Computed example of a mutant assay.
Amino acid sequence: MQRRHLLGGGTAAALLTALGASARPAFGQTAPVRIVLGFAAGGSVDGVGRMLAEQIGAGLGRTAIVENRTGAAGRLAIEAVKASAADGDTLLLVPQGPMTLFTHVFKSLKFDPMKDFAPISRVCIGDYALTIGPSVPAKDLAGFRDWLKSAGDRASYGSPGAGTIPHFIGVATARALGVPMTHVPYRGSALAVTDVAGGQIPCMFSPVGDAIEQHRAQRVRIVATAGSTRTPFLDGVPTLKESGIDLDVPLWYGLYAPQAVPAATLDRLRATVVAALGTPASKERLGRLGLVPAPSTAAELTALQQRESAMWGPVVKASGFTPED
């Protein structure tokens, strides 16, 4: 994609003289702002991304688009953003797993979550959920546990991808329930929830928002969430901890740019995001996805990322999970 427009020779020469040959690309030209996601269209990450694209585009007076670059549990998207120009035109919207968990579940990464990206803001918070489909004759987690005991090779679960936080929640839940469950990774949650509703797989772990509409339509049933308190978006759904599984894993989404984007550009992007998330329209749209706006400073996002990354190391090791590739 053409990212910058060429200037006439005299103008270019004057700019190079004023700014120096090492000047970074300018922000705010006519190329679209790209918000890159590592998951397919239709899930909650995609929904948040499209809302942000509209709001950021309006706030900057530019076109902003979503680019769904699926594969490798979101790593391909992250690698693409890392390799993009440090001009603020390419951004990464990501659930916290790749930035806090991936260093503990993949033997080799082509990116360093702390060193290769500049934090802009946390975007929103929510919950992960355990969702069962019509192939499971249960109405709650206790009934699901009873079904698992006799399910045999039918005991499996879907997730948005291998090595994601929902994958790991499934590993921990299966261990707590004392029943082996086969993991079935998808490229995002949209296809997984379709297969749960259709009976191809019995259950899935995902953000609440990826299953909430199917739950409300009674095609699937969310039987537990993984946060410390019950989600305000679902009546009567307990937490895993209430149900005897000692897990407390909150969900958040963050917005990042490649490292070396100028501070002034990051500040402008952050101000645009914070303003967008403060509108009633954003609150309503995120609420439909089971999410709550939760902007932050760059320092707050960095501290959150560091704290959770430090937490995941011993948890993954204690679970017996074997790091992949």
Rank of each mutant, 00 (worst) to 15 (best):
L19Y: 13
V223F: 02
D210Q: 14
G152E: 06
L16P: 03
E308D: 15
M114P: 01
G158A: 14
T279D: 01
L240I: 09
Y128I: 06
R288K: 10
E213K: 15
A53M: 09
Y253V: 12
P25W: 07
M51L: 15
G290T: 00
M311R: 14
P280Q: 07
A80V: 01
K82T: 02
T90P: 00
N68T: 15
G290P: 00
G152W: 10
K110L: 14
G320P: 06
G10Y: 10
P95A: 12
K82S: 04
A26D: 08
A275K: 15
G199I: 04
A264G: 05
E54F: 12
H5F: 08
L92G: 01
V45E: 13
F102N: 08
S121C: 04
S189L: 09
P25V: 04
T173D: 04
G244I: 10
I245G: 05
F205D: 03
G227R: 00
F168E: 12
V274R: 15
V184G: 06
I56V: 15
V94M: 12
A77L: 00
G133Q: 01
S309Q: 14
A294V: 00
A303F: 07
G88E: 02
P295G: 11
T239N: 05
Q214I: 02
G126T: 04
G254T: 13
Q96N: 14
Q306L: 12
A294E: 13
P98M: 15
V249A: 05
G61E: 10
L240P: 00
W252H: 13
Y128F: 15
A118I: 01
G152F: 12
A192T: 06
Y128R: 01
G143C: 08
P258W: 01
I78G: 00
G59V: 06
V179N: 00
A18C: 08
K107Q: 15
F321L: 11
A197S: 14
R175F: 03
G49C: 04
L266D: 09
G43T: 02
T297R: 10
M311Q: 10
A263F: 05
D146I: 01
G143L: 06
G8S: 05
G10P: 02
M51G: 12
M1G: 12
P314H: 03
H104E: 10
L148K: 09
L91I: 11
R221W: 04
S108W: 01
A31R: 15
D46A: 14
P323C: 09
S319P: 05
L301Q: 10
A310F: 08
V273R: 06
V123C: 03
V184N: 10
R34I: 07
K149E: 08
G320W: 11
S156N: 04
A226N: 00
R62T: 05
A129G: 02
M51V: 11
L60N: 08
R34H: 14
Y157P: 04
A294G: 05
D235E: 15
R285S: 07
R216L: 13
R187E: 15
G178H: 04
L291E: 07
